[in-house]
Computed example of a mutant assay.
Amino acid sequence: MITRDTHAFLDFARGCATDFGPATARAAFLVAPDGFALAEQSAQDNRYMAQAATFDPASASSQHRELHRAFSGVLPTVCFAGSPDTPDALFPNNVFGTAAGRYVVGRMRHAVRQREAARDDIRGFFAGVLDYAEVDLSTQAHPCELTGALVIDRARGLGFCGLSERCDEEGARLMHEAFGLRATLLFDLAPGEYHTNVVLAVLAGRAAIVCPQGFADAAVVEAIASLYAPHVVSCSPAEHAAFVGNAISLSADTVWMSAHAGRTLTEANRERLRVAGFTVATVELDAIEAGGGSLRCCVGEIY
């Protein structure tokens, strides 16, 4: 099922068992912020990006290395080199994604990011080292920026796809099929939002962080909240702006977010996460956040 009908989606989703696959990834991959700089094309539709003068490549590299060390204490984490030709490559989850036995290559909107999809080393890692089958969406015409646009509940096989200039309806359908999902809910993001994973996180299949202002239709927020109630964190505008929604669970008991997000997270919402079984772990990423994304954007998941 792939639909805009929240009622039909909920009727179906509530009947889905948590047997689709592991709720969290078995490994992760990163791409180093080598050549980290303002990508003018990406800045056209990413309001979270800072001005060029505020980019600090040395700090971004140091913080990214600390992120790698932190994740390596939780699950196997590999890091590929970056390139000055691809200044946004440190956000690889938009370009490469995985499901059981296969990897998916997304179609990026901007040419500066389309270059990332051509990397032989990352493709070779998935195809040659992991022996995953390839699903290549990068050469078709419809933007589909993978787990930037599509937030996935891996336990139940459910997708939540926000439509914007970074993903249209046909792109959403292609991703739904590529990841083999049971059901995907389509909805419009609010004007000015570019990726769903900035305004929504599904944590280990049992909780959700939602930024209501990021959705064009409040009914979609209500539907998602009802599916994960009572374990729902509803972000304030300040939490939204601080990337609290750009979080990820890499294990059953921890939610990761940037240090800025963690400092902004209210005690009430931290308690909601605790009740859902999660502690909050953070890494300082303010230099990386200048690039318009935060912690979850840096993580490629391997299932």
Rank of each mutant, 00 (worst) to 15 (best):
R102M: 08
A155P: 04
R65K: 11
V105C: 07
A43Y: 07
G21L: 13
R107Q: 10
L285E: 02
A208T: 13
A127R: 15
G214W: 01
A89Y: 00
V280H: 10
M49P: 00
A155G: 15
D45W: 01
D153Q: 05
C211S: 08
P76M: 07
Y48I: 10
C79T: 15
C161F: 09
V199N: 01
L30N: 00
H240F: 04
L181H: 08
A208P: 08
F91N: 00
M1D: 06
G159I: 07
Y303G: 01
D153V: 14
S62E: 14
L10N: 12
P84Q: 01
L130C: 14
R14N: 15
E134K: 12
L250G: 02
L137N: 00
C298H: 02
A111H: 11
V210T: 11
H260C: 03
I288C: 08
R47T: 13
G180Y: 06
S294H: 03
A37L: 00
H231V: 15
V78E: 13
D131P: 07
P237A: 10
E271M: 12
D11P: 13
V95T: 10
E170A: 08
A242W: 11
P22Q: 14
C167L: 02
E289S: 04
V199C: 06
H176V: 09
C235L: 01
F9S: 12
I122N: 04
F215H: 12
A13S: 13
M49R: 02
F187P: 10
S251E: 13
V220R: 06
A219N: 15
A28G: 07
V280E: 06
M175P: 04
G292N: 05
R296P: 05
L90N: 09
L273S: 02
R65D: 10
D45V: 08
V233L: 09
G15R: 13
R272I: 14
V104P: 08
D286Q: 06
V220Y: 01
L200D: 03
